[in-house]
């Protein structure tokens, strides 16, 4: 019975602890379209002891189902921090900000989802097509290189097996001569 009471007490304290944690200041986060393809991420800490903010985005490109760090900024005198960021994908994207205090302790956090509509196009297709040497004279170059590689492998393995095969034979021959 005492054990049961002790367990209940621990469970109750854990729940209270977690509810106290939830009562910590909740920062705010806003995402707006910036100039060109960039986004402006702005967060407010909601507490006086925040020193820096770390911003994250959820992208399966680099972090699986986790948040990926996209930038850091110092919190200003009114508790705000902001960064500019250009995503390399489109679609509904969760963003998150963590406000940290001195020593790196987490003070506040906030997430929101923003629909990214602009996506930098990168290189034009023509440039990619141009970089295909196998379609042109490069094909001969590749064949020459592969031939050189094959010759090097043949020489290396040939030398190795020459020693491995010849040395025992020469020993046998020397023993017979004696």
């Amino acid at each position: 019975m005492k054990k049961l009471l002790a367990i209940l007490l621990i469970v109750a304290l854990s729940i209270m602890g977690s509810s106290f944690a939830q009562a910590a200041p909740v920062g705010s986060l806003s995402v707006t379209q910036g100039s060109g393809d960039s986004l402006n991420l702005s967060g407010s800490c909601g507490a006086s002891n925040c020193t820096s903010a770390t911003f994250y985005a959820k992208s399966n490109q680099f972090a699986g189902s986790n948040f990926m760090q996209i930038g850091q900024a110092q919190v200003d005198s009114v508790g705000k921090a902001q960064i500019s960021y250009t995503p390399t994908w489109t679609g509904n994207t969760p963003f998150k900000v963590n406000f940290l205090g001195a020593g790196g302790s987490l003070i506040a956090t906030q997430t929101l989802t923003f629909d990214v509509v602009k996506d930098p196009s990168g290189f034009p297709q023509s440039a990619i097509q141009f970089q295909r040497p196998l379609d042109s004279t490069g094909a001969i170059f590749v064949k020459i290189l592969l031939t050189i590689v094959a010759l090097v492998w043949l020489t290396l393995l040939g030398s190795f097996f020459l020693v491995v095969i010849r040395v025992p034979k020469l020993s046998k021959q020397a023993s017979e001569e004696k």
Binding site: V163, R166, V167, L170, S171
Partner: peptide, 19 residues
């Protein structure tokens, strides 16, 4: 490889190592 250190073995090894 049953190495005995004969002249022929040494020349062979030297030649291969040079290559």
């Amino acid at each position: 490889l049953n190495w005995m250190g004969t002249k022929r073995q040494r020349v062979l090894l030297h030649r291969v190592l040079t290559i």
